Simulated scan of single mutants.
Amino acid sequence: CATTPGFYLFKATKYPEIKSLMKPDPRLVWIVIMMLLSQLAALYLVKDLHWKWVIFWAYVFGNCLNHSMTLAIHEVSHNFAFGHNKSLWNRWFGILANLPIGIPYSVSFKRYHMDHHRYLGADGIDVDIPTDFEGWFFCTTFRKFIWVVLQPFFYAFRPLFINRKPISSLEIINTSVQITFNITIYYVFGVKSLVYMLAASLLGLGLHPISGHFIAEHYMFLKGHETYSYYGPLNFLTFNVGYHNEHHDFPNIPGKNLPLVSKGLNMYSGV
C-alpha cells in the first residue's frame, strides 16, 4: 500500500475517536519476557550441538526471535510498555529486551528513531534512510544483494557518519550491561551459545524474509511515497510494524492497535 505520510492523519481529523487507541500496551512486557526466556532456553539447548546445527538454528529459530525483539524494542522506544509518564522505566526495560540480541543498541535506537519520526527523509538527520552513497554504489543486482546481507552493519554505523550524537550515560549503561551478559553467556554456556546469539541477530536482520519490512518501509519505489504499508502475516512476528504509514501518522498508537487505524478510518469514511 503506497500512501503518502499524512494520509491517515488527514482522515483522522474528522474522527477524534482515534485518540482512544493512544494508550500503552501492557501485553508488551509479558511478551518480551517470554521471548527473553525462550532465547535463554535456546542458548542452553545449542551449547553442545555441532557447529552446522548452531548456525542452522540461529537462522531458522533464533533470528526470528531476535528480529521480533528488535521490533519490541521499537515499541518500547515509543514508551508503549509503561506509558509516557514512566519513560525511564521504558528505557530500563529496553535494556532488558536488548540482552538476547547481543549488541547494545536499545538506548541509542530511541535517540535516533525519534529524529526519524520528526524529520522523515531529511538528509543528515534521519539515519533510518539509506544515504545517497548507498543508493549510488549499491546499484547493481549483485551489489544490492551484498547490501541486504550487510544491512545490520549499515544500520549500526550509518549514525556515526551521518548524525553522530554525544554518548549518554544510559548508552554507557546499556553497553556495560550487554557486555556483562555476553561474558556470562560465554562462561555459563560456552562459545557456541554466544555465536548462536550473535549470528541470530546478524542473520535475522540481513538476508532473511522477515527483514523485508526494512525495504518496504523506507525505499522510494514511487516518487513522493516515502513509506509503504504491508498487511501480511509477518506482522504477527513484528508487532504490526508493517502498518508503517499508520505508524508514522500516529506514532503514539502501539502496534497492536495499528490495524484498527486503517480499518476504522476506512470504515468511517466509506473507503
Rank of each mutant, 00 (worst) to 15 (best):
residue 109 F to I: 04
residue 66 N to F: 05
residue 137 F to D: 07
residue 98 N to M: 14
residue 245 N to W: 09
residue 65 L to K: 02
residue 210 I to S: 11
residue 100 P to G: 09
residue 263 K to S: 14
residue 47 K to D: 09
residue 59 Y to N: 06
residue 27 R to F: 12
residue 39 Q to D: 13
residue 137 F to P: 01
residue 222 L to E: 13
residue 68 S to G: 15
residue 117 H to R: 06
residue 95 I to K: 01
residue 191 V to G: 01
residue 197 M to D: 09
residue 23 K to W: 02
residue 78 H to I: 05
residue 261 V to I: 08
residue 258 L to K: 10
residue 25 D to W: 06
residue 130 P to Y: 00
residue 85 N to G: 01
residue 206 G to D: 01
residue 1 C to Q: 14
residue 28 L to H: 03
residue 70 T to R: 11
residue 21 L to I: 08
residue 154 F to H: 04
residue 56 F to P: 01
residue 74 H to F: 08
residue 73 I to R: 04
residue 90 N to Y: 03
residue 154 F to M: 02
residue 158 R to F: 01
residue 60 V to Y: 11
residue 119 Y to M: 08
residue 72 A to M: 15
residue 54 V to R: 02
residue 52 K to T: 10
residue 153 F to R: 00
residue 257 N to T: 05
residue 65 L to H: 08
residue 200 A to D: 04
residue 34 M to G: 13
residue 167 I to E: 11
residue 212 G to I: 02
residue 238 T to H: 03
residue 238 T to P: 00
residue 169 S to M: 12
residue 211 S to L: 04
residue 175 T to N: 13
residue 97 A to K: 02
residue 169 S to V: 13
residue 90 N to H: 10
residue 209 P to H: 09
residue 131 T to W: 00
residue 24 P to D: 09
residue 95 I to C: 03
residue 69 M to T: 14
residue 12 A to M: 05
residue 168 S to R: 12
residue 244 H to R: 09
